[in-house]
């Protein structure tokens, strides 16, 4: 709800760009892009509260009497290898201003949108596309430019399709229509695929009909859904009490290959801690409570049977 978690992920994406000295294009109508950039987390050189040991899985010393076949098996999946990718960040500290000032950042807040004729019912979409293309063109990020310095442009669009992006008054499109979004994402696909650029776009999907974003998912390469537990019945579920929501990897397109790198049936959950945003594999705890419930039920059933027998 309210895009808090998606915004946090977007801040990580921007912060990584600042640390790697990439160019950044930041677009937002909901909150000022200058404000968003002031909130990006500072880089730190260690994991603040690492609870995992990523070394080789230790073989347990204890001997197993019954399940002896499993004795020497590692406790984690082999795929769980830690990859040193990116940096660690501390959400409680803002990125130093000096680092931000040294980065090439373009801000877009939709204030100077002209009401020209365009296919989009809200001209902001058209303006944003044009500004992104101008940035790519001027800074020579197009693949055809064959740039000498191999850097990338990180395009971060916050809360696209929010009420501030709704169709204009005289438009023929209905308010909940995702037509503008579909066209924008497809045009972005054409733009980003022809340049050294990557775009992360957050969309408040709960404002739309459940299936309205299917076309957007089809036009994107990676689609992630953050489903918050807040306000749902999952909020009180004890097995999920440690987490704030599901991290669903909906789509991971196979690019330059036949096979997608999608992890299959594994479910992920996320938690926004004080210092970091954590994504974990979901492991359901053993069903102890149900077991005791079942015993109680069994006992009460025996009571009833006893009563029946005594009649």
């Amino acid at each position: 709800m309210y895009g808090t978690y998606a915004k946090t992920m977007l801040k990580y994406f921007i912060a990584e760009g600042v640390v790697c000295k990439h160019s950044i294009f930041l677009a937002s109508q909901d909150s000022s892009p200058h404000e968003v950039i002031r909130e990006i987390p500072a880089v730190i050189h260690f994991d603040p509260d690492s609870s995992f040991d990523f070394a080789e899985p230790k073989v347990s010393d204890s001997k197993m009497k019954i399940a002896f076949r499993y004795e020497n098996l590692p406790t984690h999946d082999n795929e769980d290898k830690h990859i040193n990718l990116g940096h660690f960040y501390d959400l409680t500290k803002p990125m130093p201003l000096a680092d931000i000032e040294n980065t090439d950042i373009y801000y877009w807040n939709g204030c100077r949108v002209e009401n020209g004729v365009s296919a989009f019912s809200n001209p902001a979409y058209n303006d944003l596309l044009r500004q992104i293309k101008t940035k790519i063109k001027e800074d020579r990020f197009f693949l055809k430019d064959n740039p000498s310095k191999k850097s990338i442009l990180r395009i971060a669009v916050h809360s696209l399709g929010s009420p501030l992006w709704l169709p204009m008054k005289n438009s023929l499109h209905s308010v909940d229509s995702s037509k503008d979004l579909d066209m924008f994402i497809f045009c972005m696909r054409a733009l980003v695929r022809s340049a050294l650029a990557v775009a992360v776009i957050t969309i408040p999907s709960h404002l739309y009909h459940e299936n309205a974003l299917e076309r957007c998912i089809h036009s994107s390469d990676i689609s992630i859904r953050l489903q918050s537990f807040a306000g749902t019945e999952l909020e009180t579920n004890k097995a999920l009490s440690e987490y704030h929501g599901f991290f669903q990897l909906i789509k991971l397109a196979p690019i330059n290959s036949f096979a997608s790198k999608h992890p299959g049936s594994i479910e992920y959950v996320f938690k926004l801690r004080r210092k970091k945003f954590v994504i974990d594999k979901l492991h359901l705890p053993p069903d102890f409570e149900d077991d005791s419930d079942r015993k109680k039920k069994k006992l009460s059933l025996l009571d009833v049977m006893g009563q029946v027998g005594s009649y």
Binding site: S118, A119, L129, R130, K133, T134, M183, C187, S194
Partner: peptide
């Protein structure tokens, strides 16, 4: 067509959408 769409984005007349 992806290339054509990308090339049309800065064109004033936006051939495919007008």
């Amino acid at each position: 067509m992806l290339k054509l769409i990308e090339e049309n984005i800065l064109n004033e007349d936006y051939g495919f959408v007008e």
